[in-house]
Design a protein around this nucleic acid. Structure first.
Lengths: 194, 194
DNA sequence: CTAATTTTGTACTGCCAGTTTCAGAAAGAG
DNA sequence: CTCTTTCTGAAACTGGCAGTACAAAATTAG
């Protein structure tokens, strides 16, 4: 009976995500969010309540999107090390193809630190998800012989996670592709079985 | 002949640096800057022209401070690998003792990206300085046999730089000390001669 | 058609930020 | 002492921001 929405909520989130991703939270104005989503102010506030709520929804969207991307990507992995190699390579591809925006979660951590409990909780949840996937690959690799057994799988996961953060930060700064790939290679060889 | 300043410019910069470091650029208000520096609005604007200029001065101060810290720290290094180990350890110490603020440069990259040319230039300059020091240690280590020769010294420098960024980001997020040190260890062993 | 209900565009509001102004204070040169 | 210069503190200014109000539009059930 009511008037239906003229837009797709997910598409709107995608637009808002791109805006926040490029310019951060504070310096993205509601007007820019209107432009990025294609919605009017009313629709944004009607749907997402506030800028802060919208940002939370965006973080959520980003996180699930990442999980989905990783799932589809890593079906093709030959072994544990291959999965990690693929992950690093696709991270770099993403950066090169999408304008070196870095990682939205890293950007959020840098901007908010732990001052905003809700944002912090979401970042931590995403980190946990990422780490648990990485730990899984590390264990797989240790079982199939592609990854070193000198270190605990969780340590390897942490290390790769830190490396990815580092690479994304380098990329946002504008580092050369060569530099990104060489970091990825060195990190890969650090966890591979020798 | 004129009335002299009642404050020390460097101390003021230090205060402003701490404020920006903790809360980022946008969400640090001029009022907070007054509180952090101990100055009044007039004095700040009289001395630093604008919030943005003050931020640039802060980045500069931070950069030089980092270079100085590294110089004094790394006199005691036994060899190339030892220098890198010391650097990683002191990074972690700094994080634990100073409230997990991450790296101001990384925070600036995350907040501004490359949208602000002046900030970008300063970040790049600091990166170059850091990388050239790291390259020096890598070369030293390759000469004294403590660091692997499988990789180019510049690649090793990039890798360690990325690792430090990653560790500082982890720390700002609030990761456990254990996690930080294990990442540092894994990175160290990745570049050490086997 | 009409009534009910929700969305949407426009215009508005209040607030708070960065910045400016200005008058008074402080200090040294002559 | 006085003149000049600069600093300082308080208050005012100005623009832009997040958020709101409201009327018109759109849709469908009855």
């Amino acid at each position: 009976m009511p008037r239906p929405r003229e837009f797709d909520e997910t598409e709107a989130l995608e637009g808002a995500m791109n805006a926040f991703w490029a310019r951060g939270y504070e310096s993205t104005s509601t007007e820019e969010l209107c432009a990025a989503t294609g919605l009017g102010r009313s629709s944004i506030y009607n749907t997402f309540s506030s800028k802060h709520e919208l940002f939370r929804r965006v973080l959520d969207h980003y996180s699930h999107r990442g999980i989905r991307l990783r799932e589809t990507l890593l079906d093709n992995a030959p072994d544990g090390l291959g999965a990690i190699r693929l992950l690093l390579a696709s991270t770099i591809d993403d950066e090169l193809e999408n304008g070196r925006r870095g990682c939205l979660m890293v950007n959020a951590i840098a901007e908010f630190g732990t001052t905003d409990p809700e944002v912090a909780a979401q970042v931590n949840a995403d980190t946990e998800a990422h780490l648990s996937a990485l730990t899984h690959f590390a264990r797989t690799g240790q079982a199939d012989g592609s990854i070193t057994r000198d270190r605990d799988a969780t340590e390897i996961a942490n290390f790769i996670h830190a490396t990815i953060s580092g690479i994304r930060t380098m990329s946002r700064r504008g580092a050369e592709q060569k530099a990104l790939t060489s970091v990825a290679e060195l990190a890969t060889s650090a966890v591979s079985r020798r």
